[in-house]
Design a protein around this nucleic acid. Sequence first.
DNA 1: CCCTCATCTTACTCCGGCGTAGGTTCCCCC
DNA 2: GGGGGAACCTACGCCGGAGTAAGATGAGGG
Lengths: 212, 212
Amino acid sequence: MTAPSDARARGTRLPRVRRRRQLLAAAQEVFVARGYHAAAMDEIADRAGVSKPVLYQHFPGKLELYLALLEEHSEVLVEKQREALESTDDNRQRVIASFRAYFDFVAGDGEAFRLVFESDLRNLPAVREKSEETFQRCAELIGAVIRQDTSISDEEAHLLSIGLVGMAETSARYWLNNHGSVPKDAAEQLVARLAWRGISGWDLQRAAGEQD
Amino acid sequence: MTAPSDARARGTRLPRVRRRRQLLAAAQEVFVARGYHAAAMDEIADRAGVSKPVLYQHFPGKLELYLALLEEHSEVLVEKQREALESTDDNRQRVIASFRAYFDFVAGDGEAFRLVFESDLRNLPAVREKSEETFQRCAELIGAVIRQDTSISDEEAHLLSIGLVGMAETSARYWLNNHGSVPKDAAEQLVARLAWRGISGWDLQRAAGEQD
DNA sequence: CCCTCATCTTACTCCGGCGTAGGTTCCCCC
DNA sequence: GGGGGAACCTACGCCGGAGTAAGATGAGGG
């Protein structure tokens, strides 16, 4: 499926930085396809058309290689999220843009989102912290918007943001796994509407007595 | 933390079924604390106050042991969810009960929820399928209720359900990791309100022209 | 009292996979 | 054109952990 990049002629020499980039790409493919534990350094080297020691001349170990990728893609997600929220002043549009950002992230870059959302190494503190930090940063961006327009407490706003981010992540992943059943635009809009209905006018309802 | 069950006197013999139950309990503790990969069969046996071959007289291998636990707790979650939705005919109360079920599940039984929600073995097809099946079954229960009261299409209702389940799971997990910041009741109610606002009266809005 | 069978133990084998020692080839610059 | 250094290779050490033989122990029936 999707012709695996360049298992190059196993004979071409490359300048250091170029090789490093290629190794990262190869590692991403393997980590995404197999997960951390089932990924073998041999396979990563093979896929890059190179032998194992070369890999170790660029990265001190398997873990560091993995962390480099995790770091990179976590940053991408947060950045996409920030851009989405800064793209407009209309909160309804913000919600839509925010969800689109999640769907874009999940749809993009060789399924790299699996490193961030589905890592099989979350039991390692370093990885757990990075994952949670990414999650929290996304939630915090959204929480700031919520707080801006409601009188809700900080902690409650944060919990709501967490829920919304979870909804975005989950529905985006589900949508990807079931491509074809719903087009991307429609899925984004649908879930965004659910979220927007949920938060818009929060204060008004509360003041009115918390009914229906 | 919470005195680790019974690392028994390592000398007491037990009838077969009793031993089996105890082994499952020990395995759960270790799998939950360490994840599948970092969990050692030696440690599981130790924790049960028994030697490794005994473990293999009850379960053919590490994987089967793990699957037995996964299966068991997946079933618990779905059952809790079903009960919650059957507990009332008022949809607003249904939403609240449904979220409470998630929070209860996450709060209960030695954090066994980590096996279902945070397995580090999802790259194995058998595990992936079980996890997704559980998720889908929860979503389907909710989807049925949504379809009952709206004219929304089946596929769209399902996607919304997925989003809601993701929100429940995510917020429940977050709440557990940050105990003390918000009491359980308040957290449940808050997130449930978000969800209820999101879905209630969906058709009315749609008919009115999809504004705000 | 002793035989039998189920329960349990010690002490291994085996294998996959990370990481490395030591030697080789090719390019570039003087 | 040859010396030097960077890029690369083959081949191995080694360790953790799953799973397994082969023997010890204790409880109940004859």
